[in-house]
Amino acid sequence: MNDNAVDKTYVAPDERLVEQKKKDSLLHILMAGILFENPAFLLVLGTCPLLAITISAKDALFMGFAVIFVQVGSELFISILRKAIPDKVRIPAFITVIAGFVTIVQMLVSAYFPALNDTLGIYIPLIVVNCIVLARAEAFASKKPVLASVVDGLGMGAGFTVALVLMGSIREILGNGTFFGMHLPLFGTVIEPMMFFILPPGGFFVYGLCICFTQMVVRWYQKKSGKPVSNAPVVGHCDTCGTCAGCDVSEGNKV
């Protein structure tokens, strides 16, 4: 204790407790998922569906619902089982749980929304390897209690959905002149639809700009509120690779 008192970074136990409690509060976890740790724009995870199915806002929204379901379900299960799963086989165990929930989604979608099944196609089964789900299972659900894990799943899923719908709207409005299938004034008549945005290259382009703006907003907010400025993810670094789990490279030989 006495040694700590000299240290400038020393925080009184009470204060530390308050800080920790604030961090663990459910609202904080929820908001972190949606805004401050947005999985798509700040953690840069799950890029595949984000680029592939944001051609229309509607598809993006449905994909978001699918991801929320899988995220919440698997975090709930993994959190319940977190003491039963041996540490050595945790990654295969997590993948099995996630794949189970993805199969449920696949069956529900093909039964009730066959048209949607055609448009989303292969990207529904690919939620299994969506890094967000596995990364949160590993980083959060395997360590935290059940309720917090469910809220984290909800927040992360919602954050991802917000990102999906945002990108879907931008690409649909600019590329097709419509929004959720509705025609908009000006767009499509005065402003010609730009094919570029609904083609694959447009996906990369819009995603790049979205990340850029989100980072600007978060940095501005943090500067204003006096909290530490987070660093932009460095591409090519292990943090952004997203192949998060079961990776030996991150142990010793960092790329």
Binding site: P201, G202, F205, G208, Q215, M216
Partner: peptide, 21 residues
């Protein structure tokens, strides 16, 4: 500064994707 890192990389990827068209 705002485009440094990931954003400019994605825009570059977009241009490479255009070439594949």
């Amino acid at each position: 500064a705002a485009l440094k890192g990931l954003p400019i990389t994605l825009i570059a990827a977009s241009l490479v994707a255009v070439s594949f068209f």
